[in-house]
Design a binder for these strands. Sequence first.
DNA 1: TTCCCACTGGGCAAACTTGCACGTTGGGCA
DNA 2: TGCCCAACGTGCAAGTTTGCCCAGTGGGAA
Lengths: 183, 183
Amino acid sequence: MDNGPRERRKSATRLALHQAALRLALEHGPDRVTVESIADAADVSRRTFSNHFAGKEEAIFYGDLLRLRRLLDLVRERPADEPPRTALTRAATALLAESDRLDPAWVAQRRLLRGHPSLIAHQVAAYAAVERELAAELGPRGADELRSKVLAATFLAALRAATRHWLEHPDRTLAEWVTEALS
Amino acid sequence: MDNGPRERRKSATRLALHQAALRLALEHGPDRVTVESIADAADVSRRTFSNHFAGKEEAIFYGDLLRLRRLLDLVRERPADEPPRTALTRAATALLAESDRLDPAWVAQRRLLRGHPSLIAHQVAAYAAVERELAAELGPRGADELRSKVLAATFLAALRAATRHWLEHPDRTLAEWVTEALS
DNA sequence: TTCCCACTGGGCAAACTTGCACGTTGGGCA
DNA sequence: TGCCCAACGTGCAAGTTTGCCCAGTGGGAA
């Protein structure tokens, strides 16, 4: 983390592109949004958009990617001798504790997904990549290769299920659903 | 005027540096402000400051420079057959009409000048350069070389005098003082 | 079908910003 | 007086953004 003006500017434009993409997608529907309109909304050239994202879907899901990477970091921050399942549960709890103020953009993003199967392809690809990283992180904690993969897959699946469930039953907090799902 | 993202960003940086410089100079005094602190306040590197301004004084007076350049443009916008003095008067009136919402930063800037003679050197240099440009603009309107220079000099001097007077006697508007001074 | 056109992805050079390094300067202190 | 050091100005290479370019794609009209 260099934290000089250069890095700050770079992630600022990336964030601006993501937020513009998400806002426009929610506003007009994901299909009626052009890369150019996103770039304009972020006060950046179309070319610069391509420097950051391979397509509008990637820009829309950038927030999700950040969230997943944060989860990975939290897992890595767990003590190295912690058993795999404990580390995963604690990391998930920590992630939810960080974002207790429920990010409305993220909720909107989730709802956006439901009606647009084309977007889901990118979503699962992103999750698959993170899943591999997550499994790799579990090896050093005493899980063989297969068990690592299974744990990572089921863990993320449980998270997704709890989130989906929460969107339909907001009567309890997301944290509660997640805790229950992980048990 | 290209008005693409690049130009917008560039003048935004310049403006941010100017405003940071002015704010810090008013806050701590012009002598106790370093180039680095200005750059930090504008979220820009020290090197970038040097790419825009030769020194902190230039950054502080950038607003003045913009104002003078705007005056020059207004003179150029006057009909080409308008006699020199009329064009000058009308341009000054137009400039005042544009900035009727009295820019508090500009007022503060003027007050800042009064206690710091070192800053005045830069100020007069800037005015001298504009004065030459202004004189050059008067030639095509039927004034010989000497008369152009005299007109430009007296015109700017009258503006400065009216402004100074207004700072001490804010009981009438700047526009009124200027109109009176130019007559 | 064929043509047209908006949208897209990406190569390329130029512009802008940045980090680093180096030499200079001017004020404070031993 | 001589030394030290913060602030400054600037050359240079690398990173980022931009404008312009061209080729590929897909959907709609002739």
